[in-house]
Design a binder for these strands. Structure first.
Lengths: 213, 213
DNA sequence: GTGAATTAGTGAATTATTTCACGACTTTTC
DNA sequence: GAAAAGTCGTGAAATAATTCACTAATTCAC
């Protein structure tokens, strides 16, 4: 059996990418694929791909490559694609709205179930078929949801994170520039759009010729 | 003098984060800070912070820490905060609109100068004070801009990237799920929101107690 | 001024990740 | 059915990044 604690984090971060790509191949009706093809398409070294897959056992066949459906089925189980993970979204601004209109459930095992905002003019609406509640109702509405997308103004980030954690949230995708502080059983991934843009510009200037990611 | 080729990429990715944080300290009127304080606030090990800074020379003082203004000034120069990098945005959907309304120039050396979309109902408008042009005008309007934010539908990603590169773009911040193919003097950073969310969920399940990223 | 406390900078160790390169096996070609 | 081509899986090497742990310098408290 696969020991998930032995899977390098770098590998784990690539799994959703692999999954989606395999899903596309499946939809295209392709039934086999080699690590080299995957490498060209996903810009990940082919040895890295083979190594990544190998943590889960021998999934391919020498001289042949990988069977798309088999691999896809395997990742589906591994990434728990069969059970949907419910998510709440806090902060229905521009970015929040973009998420609500983004159809995550397709190709994905996550679904935004409820959205919250402090602005009364947004409360009660449905955006992308998701109901918007007032943040005051957070505690009573959150139910058994343990994942939150945080797209609030930066000043709200920490207080809102505290409330979310108090309500049982264990994972936060934080789009605010604030580096929030959480207990160590709560996982936070930061995505800072300004930092990403600035980082791109810096890399363009100083590492002009290599391919990085 | 600092040899930029010797700066680890992992360090380079943290620089914009450092910069912003120092800027906040500066605004708060703080004039000194230790690697330990920075560590607590930014969730980066203090030894890592000291190591990162040390690539740029001895910026601190033993027993004292770092002088906020000095460090900030140093990073300002290093990250070229003084000259603004112009950026174009392609695809004025929900996510694109979020970017246009996001005030990057504050705390940042980048500025979205022009936006493009194929939808005639969006062309001619101003969003977040940025003019929206029709994509057909891309080549004549792009001028000397070398950085693009790509927030178009996935099917448009590669063709649009090709056009951008043809027009002289050297850096693309790609928010589509497509892994675009580019010549090796063009830098692409991918940010895949669905992958990020899925990755968070995966890490929550399999690495419940450690702090990552 | 003196001793205690603080803190940067860094050599060395450790840990993590990627990549090379090759044996073993499969498929394809003719 | 034999030879050629393709491809995985992986040991080992290489590279990258983090962290430990200590020295030397400085500040702080009194």
């Amino acid at each position: 059996m696969v020991n998930y604690n032995k899977i390098p984090q770098a590998t784990a971060k690539r799994l959703p990418l692999y999954y989606r790509f395999l899903n596309n191949l499946h939809i295209q009706g392709k039934d086999r694929v080699s690590s080299k093809e995957l490498s060209n398409a996903m810009k990940v070294d082919s040895a890295t791909i083979r190594r990544d897959f190998s943590y889960f056992g021998a999934l391919g066949k020498k001289g042949y490559g990988y069977n798309v459906d088999y691999l896809l089925g395997f990742f589906r189980k591994t990434l728990d694609q069969d059970e949907n993970t419910p998510v709440v979204l806090i902060g229905v601004g521009n970015l929040g709205t973009a998420f609500l209109n983004y159809n995550f459930t397709k190709n994905n095992n996550t679904k935004i179930e409820k959205a919250f905002d402090a602005d009364p003019s947004k409360v009660g609406k449905k955006i992308g078929n998701i109901q918007v509640y007032h943040v005051d109702e957070l505690e009573e509405q959150i139910g058994d949801i343990h994942v939150a997308i945080l797209t609030v103004p930066v000043a709200e980030a920490q207080p809102m994170a505290d409330r979310l954690i108090e309500s049982g949230v264990k994972g936060i995708l934080n789009f605010t520039p604030a580096r929030i502080t959480v207990p160590n059983d709560v996982r936070v991934h930061h995505i800072d759009l300004a930092v990403e843009l600035q980082s791109l510009v810096y890399f363009m200037k100083h590492y002009p010729l290599e391919e990085i990611e």
